[in-house]
Design a protein around this nucleic acid. Structure first.
Lengths: 202, 202
DNA sequence: TCAAGTAACGGACAATTGTCCGCAAATCAT
DNA sequence: ATGATTTGCGGACAATTGTCCGTTACTTGA
């Protein structure tokens, strides 16, 4: 009967779901695709979907993991080959990469944010505790701490500052600034750097 | 038949809905109350609800308008009776008031944010174009521009800066910093002021 | 190899958000 | 006053998210 093994396809099923999701998202847009539609297209039950992904945001998060890996690698590579560059310049570069990443995946980000806390308060996948956010926050905090230790930056609360800097370029306001106010990505990067990063340093 | 006039009760119906909403929200919590439940309790049809309020966020927005009026009045009163105070100090005070306001209404804010763009892209009530946001943004931008003209602040893009400053204290990150990271409201105000407001000035 | 146990699939179902349209109420015109 | 027109109420309905449980495929032990 089974022309192909059904069980022990965990990873294949996951891959199928992710691939289907990516395909449907790019075809109809993130917000026009339902979980049921994905399940049906990927030929799995809704139960299977929801056992793997608590909600649409969770699915988006997983979908972004691979893309995020690119950002992470890019940042890591940059930092490893940037020994002599000043901490300040490193911080600028990291934020620039992050903003370009947001530019490419703003819709996905927005969906993740929508579902991260809006639904139940049972804190399924708090965005702020998910690997991508933690990685970037930790990195930025480290750079800030390094700069502060070297007395290149003013002695601020690095943890708080990193969180707040990242909050200030959240997807909602980013999309608003671009779509409604007409700012270009480079203008946003430039203004952000000059207004909020620059003053952190002496 | 009509023991009480049915039509031309527009304002009475609205008042009834708002009152019912406030009552149910405070009783069960914002996220545990559905639109249908409000409609049923307020004795109106769902259609009536949705004709008046596009979604739950919209309803929250209206509910907050009266509260927001207090903030607006408070800020206006402060500014009118603060002629000799420096622009810098005014800006600090305005943000402090805004943060305390967020503290009191964070749940309502969060719900508004969740619905403002998450649902349909037909841009029902863009949070960033609603009166409360516009008022605060305009005010902060004006103060910044005044400070820049007086050469008390660095010549930054006041529009962008105002948007980004407000984004950096959005309800999601605010709740995270308080609930998960244990920051107190005053710590947040203090860090925010020292790290992001202070450096804007010479 | 076969029975008992376990994992997990998938569809039916519940809850909630948002839409639509028939019909009643109010207004207006003659 | 009465018929025509407009306004808008309200419940039925659709769509979507998320849950639950019967059933089916795989695993383990003798």
């Amino acid at each position: 009967m089974p022309d192909h093994t059904l069980r022990r396809d965990d990873d294949k099923i996951s891959a199928s779901i992710l691939q289907t999701t990516e395909s449907l998202f790019s075809k109809y847009g993130v917000e026009n695709v339902s979980m049921h539609q994905i399940a049906k297209t990927a030929k799995v039950g809704q139960g299977t979907m929801y056992r793997r992904y608590a909600n649409k945001g969770d699915l988006c998060m997983d979908l972004m993991k691979e893309n995020f890996q690119d950002l992470q690698d890019s940042v890591r590579h940059y930092l490893e080959n940037a020994g002599s560059i000043s901490v300040k310049e490193k911080l600028f570069a990291v934020f620039k990469k992050q903003l370009y990443f947001l530019e490419r995946h703003s819709r996905l980000f927005e969906t993740i944010h929508s579902f991260s806390t809006s639904t139940c308060e049972s804190a399924k996948t708090n965005f702020y505790e998910a690997p991508p956010y933690v990685f970037m926050h930790t990195l930025i905090r480290s750079l800030l701490e390094e700069a502060i230790r070297a007395e290149a930056a003013r002695p601020v609360n690095a943890d708080f500052t990193a969180h707040t800097l990242m909050a200030s370029i959240n997807p909602k306001v980013y999309i608003f600034l671009k779509k409604e106010k007409g700012y270009t990505t480079d203008e946003i990067i430039d203004n952000f750097s000059r207004t909020f990063l620059e003053p952190l340093f002496f």
